[in-house]
Design a protein around this nucleic acid. Structure first.
Lengths: 267, 267
DNA sequence: ACTTGACCCTCACGCGGCGTGAGGGCGCAC
DNA sequence: GTGCGCCCTCACGCCGCGTGAGGGTCAAGT
């Protein structure tokens, strides 16, 4: 026998189990008049008839398609043509939603990449942006050292949005600054002089492309330029003695702003 | 200049415009202590500083990744490691969600197919299931005639879930019934006899695989078998005179249930 | 007749992330 | 002073129920 008239109506619990929904759900559908039991006993108990169950089953099917209850009401109460309309609308909505989530997923992926690898570029793109002496292991080493700091995080957030062209532009500003620093040192500009101070400020601006750099953080960075062989090598590669000169210039600028460079902290 | 210290703090409206969010959103983030303005004027007006704007900008970025506000709080207040964890979780969630929507989209597509074409099978599958004399235009003709009825809708809802194997099984039950009907008529079973009545009941069950068929609807169907050349051809193809015999059998069964077949309506 | 335990009932708040008023103050220009 | 555009604080609404609280009902067992 199919499911014609089994004679016995069902309680909410039984109906819910058969439909694979919760009792609360049936209560809700009753409340909003989407599907009421055809009988209420004197005790107030709901009794769902075979016809009720058919309606409920249809509702369950459409709900599984992700259709809202008001639209389901249109489908089960309205004409087949209205129903088809709702379905087509739902198809369109799903398509858009999927596309949106897909794009969002790519963005998340890029962000994770930035967190984990420091860059979202392929090695080929990196070499193109940073020049032939670029070592692709560099960003990973940076992450090992600083990966758990807030600055790395802010760096990653920005890196996630940058493509090869953006990086090329940044590299240009950085090397332009390096060159200007070298020229100033060559011209015996004194740390603390107007020219040196202006360059220190530009250094802070340029570096802030990576992450927000306060003055006291800049002072610490100056120390590192002198203390860390990798940094020293970079600046002294531009011009011997530049790392030390820049450190002194940064210290002088800090003092001119009322900051004691000897007590500066990374924050 | 970058965005260091522009001197002037912003009002909610200005901040909202720069961030591309609504004022209400900033109010909300203030309420839940996700991002409070660092200054409140005596008038109660909010003033967002440069540092506030940086925090807000970060929040906006993560919000665009679809991350919940509580998780964003973890990201912007917690360590980079916690942030990376949240991002990976979000990546996983997005993947699942996309997969879910994709499957749901396929189901909607199948349902639309069923509404519009009556079947979700390829023509090849249709011929395999329904036999070589099957005409693929048949379901479309059916939709033209009945496509705006509730029965077509219920038929479509069921058809959407059926694959080739399901249809093969249904065809078997239908032709098995046809054969039994023919045998009964051959044996001169009288309409109204126990044997004929049982077969009429089976006919209703078998037919209910398409859509719920009440007794009065069955009576109307019996009329059509006799009146519609296509139906007549089918049953008389099984055995000449079978269409008429079946109609009489259905009428007799209806009378035995207290139904007047002459006033039966399609409902 | 009473108890037990599984079921059933009706409120009513909570969730997430704001949208959308209502009702009223602030600030600047005419 | 008055008009206009900004700002403020409530507070309800959305969507589809989940999750209690507090209490009745029913069939079986003692």
């Amino acid at each position: 026998m199919v499911s014609m008239s089994d004679g016995s109506d069902l309680s909410v619990g039984q109906a819910a189990r058969r439909l694979g929904v919760t009792v609360r759900t049936l209560h809700h559908w009753d409340e909003i008049e989407l599907a009421k039991p055809s009988v209420r006993e004197d005790s107030g108990y709901r009794r769902y008839s075979g016809a009720d169950m058919e309606r409920l089953q249809r509702i369950v099917v459409y709900r599984e398609l992700g259709i809202g209850l008001e639209d389901i009401r249109i489908i089960v109460d309205g004409s087949a043509l209205e129903a088809a309309d709702v379905l087509r609308t739902q198809r369109a909505r799903l398509g858009e939603r999927i596309e949106e989530l897909r794009r969002r997923g790519e963005d998340v992926e890029r962000m994770i990449d930035a967190y984990e690898n420091g860059l979202t570029l392929t090695v080929r793109e990196q070499v193109e942006a940073f020049g032939p002496e670029w070592d692709p292991r560099w960003p990973l080493q940076a992450r090992e050292r600083y990966g758990d700091t807030g600055q790395w995080q802010q760096y990653a957030e920005r890196a996630a949005k940058r493509d090869a062209a953006d990086w090329t532009r940044i590299v240009q500003t950085v090397s332009a600054l390096d060159a200007e620093l070298a020229v100033a040192m060559d011209a015996d500009a004194e740390p603390g002089s107007e020219r040196a101070n202006a360059l220190v400020d530009r250094h802070r601006e340029v570096f802030s492309q990576y992450f927000p750099l306060t003055r006291s953080m800049q002072v610490c960075l100056g120390r590192m330029y002198e203390a860390d062989p990798a940094f020293t090598a970079h600046y002294d590669g531009v011009r011997p003695g530049l790392a030390a000169w820049l450190r002194r210039a940064i210290d002088a600028r800090a003092r001119s702003e009322g900051l004691d460079p000897d007590t500066a902290r990374w924050e």
